[in-house]
Amino acid sequence: MVVYCLLSEVVAVVLTLRPFPVAVDRRTVLILAVLLVLGVVQSETGRRVERIRRRVSGTPHINMTSVWTFAGVLLLPPLLLAVLVGGLYAHLAVRSWYRLQRVPVSRTVSNAAIILLSCYAAQAVLRVSGAEDVRSAFSRGWAGTFAIAAAGATFFVVNALLVLPARREVGRTPEALFGTWSDNGLEVATLCLGALNAVALAVLPGLVVLVLPPLLLLHRTVLVRQLEVAAHRDEKTGLYNTSGWHALAERTLAAATRQHSTFGLLMLDLDHFKQVNDTYGHLAGDAVLRAVAEAIISAVRGRGDAVGRFGGEEFVVLLPGIAHPDIGAVAERIRRAVAALKVPVGQLSITGLSTSIGMAVYPGAGTSLQRLLDAADTALYHAKATGRNKVVHVADLV
């Protein structure tokens, strides 16, 4: 990851400093200044919101810089575009992210380099399409419109792909890799606003300030959504908490009832977890819980499966559309993943973890969520009472 980040930064610098036959006139410098000033104003007015978003977000999230950087793609030569991206990210780092340990300087530099490479890729597509900038696109009619759209699509795709190797942890599902529909919708919205910014600056520059009110409102709306998501997440593990998991499970039950389909539940309990806390301390215990949560997520089937923490060392897994023969394979995969864990704690590693798992499938084990949970819990209790570190299906107890 470090090598990739350094390489992307070197490539960004080389592309910035390459000779390019575009004259930098007074008007172009003025456009750079306007974009920088408006980007800083938007960042300052939304600074508190951005810092809260960073704190409540457990994963990388979309910021609003594309509104200004994509406008720069359509209006500025590469060198001034680099000044714009560098200025905006330097301001964000100093004013919005400096108190957050999860945003070190190296991460900010890497993010800025990736955004700049995405900008250059978008500019290359624009020029291949026959438009040097947004002004020349005007003269090409619909062809110019499609060129700008292609540049925006290129920015979106290239940025999504370049970010992946720079991440410390890469998920297994499309959502973990590329974000949710709402995340990507926000990025598309900011790119659209960036294109409108460029058009305004090229035709009636005074209209560019009109983008600030809707942009700030969009920023707050996104924060509200993130807070809603955070309210349904467990702070220690990032999994669904009890209320969040129950809400999702009730929706799954309603869908299964309508569609006459099945779904499964797994109840998991870490064996002898109290010994971990007593031996290594509660901070080590929290590290074990996080590692177990990651192991469970890595062992489930992917999109659609939901993992929750019910407090203490107890976890629950929702498996939509699964049948009796298949649920055992998922449970056994989870059991083996937990058994293989090595959790570093200082100079030591905690090993030898195990989990007991109880299984139940709708509708055979019950037609209400509480009955299913009770059935899975009964199977879990039997697993613990008969030696632990095993998987038991409630149907096997009948």
Score class of each variant (00 low, 15 high):
123 Q>P: 02
257 T>L: 14
193 L>E: 15
115 I>V: 13
159 N>C: 06
377 D>N: 12
350 I>A: 08
361 V>Y: 00
369 L>C: 13
304 G>L: 06
26 R>H: 12
267 M>T: 08
352 G>Q: 05
307 V>F: 05
313 E>C: 04
182 S>M: 10
175 E>D: 14
23 A>N: 09
52 I>V: 14
310 F>S: 12
145 T>S: 13
24 V>K: 01
295 A>S: 14
266 L>I: 10
213 P>T: 09
269 D>F: 00
114 I>Y: 00
159 N>R: 13
58 G>I: 01
213 P>C: 06
124 A>Y: 03
255 A>K: 08
187 E>G: 11
206 G>I: 14
265 L>C: 12
375 A>S: 15
145 T>Q: 08
50 E>V: 08
248 L>D: 09
21 P>L: 09
223 L>N: 12
123 Q>E: 11
251 R>E: 15
36 L>H: 00
34 V>T: 12
200 A>E: 11
42 Q>A: 14
171 G>P: 05
137 A>S: 10
299 A>T: 03
196 L>D: 00
74 L>E: 02
289 L>W: 02
192 C>I: 11
393 H>T: 07
363 P>T: 08
258 R>H: 13
185 G>P: 06
371 R>I: 07
41 V>Q: 02
338 V>K: 04
386 T>I: 06
31 I>A: 02
360 A>P: 10
209 V>M: 05
219 H>Q: 10
1 M>C: 07
128 V>K: 00
111 N>R: 00
94 V>K: 12
185 G>W: 13
312 G>P: 03
106 S>Q: 12
254 A>F: 02
137 A>H: 08
280 Y>R: 08
397 L>S: 05
86 G>W: 00
54 R>M: 15
26 R>N: 11
124 A>Q: 03
13 V>S: 05
101 Q>W: 09
194 G>C: 03
237 T>Q: 02
316 V>M: 10
385 A>E: 14
168 R>N: 12
160 A>L: 11
119 C>M: 05
104 P>G: 09
61 H>I: 03
365 A>G: 08
44 E>M: 13
106 S>C: 06
187 E>M: 13
231 A>I: 05
112 A>R: 01
203 V>P: 09
23 A>Y: 15
214 P>S: 05
355 T>R: 00
237 T>D: 05
81 L>S: 03
144 G>F: 06
286 D>E: 12
357 I>C: 07
145 T>P: 01
76 L>C: 01
126 L>W: 04
385 A>L: 07
202 A>Y: 04
231 A>S: 14
157 V>D: 06
154 T>Q: 05
120 Y>N: 02
234 D>I: 00
70 F>G: 01
96 S>L: 03
322 I>F: 07
120 Y>H: 07
134 V>N: 07
371 R>D: 14
232 H>Q: 14
298 S>A: 15
179 G>E: 03
369 L>S: 10
276 V>D: 05
103 V>Q: 11
7 L>I: 03
301 R>G: 09
294 E>S: 08
77 P>Y: 04
367 T>I: 13
169 E>V: 14
193 L>S: 15
313 E>H: 05
348 L>M: 08
143 A>E: 12
2 V>I: 13
17 L>W: 09
29 V>H: 10
67 V>W: 01
220 R>T: 11
130 G>H: 06
155 F>M: 07
307 V>K: 02
264 G>I: 13
149 A>K: 01
370 Q>S: 13
246 H>S: 14
78 P>N: 04
221 T>E: 04
240 Y>G: 00
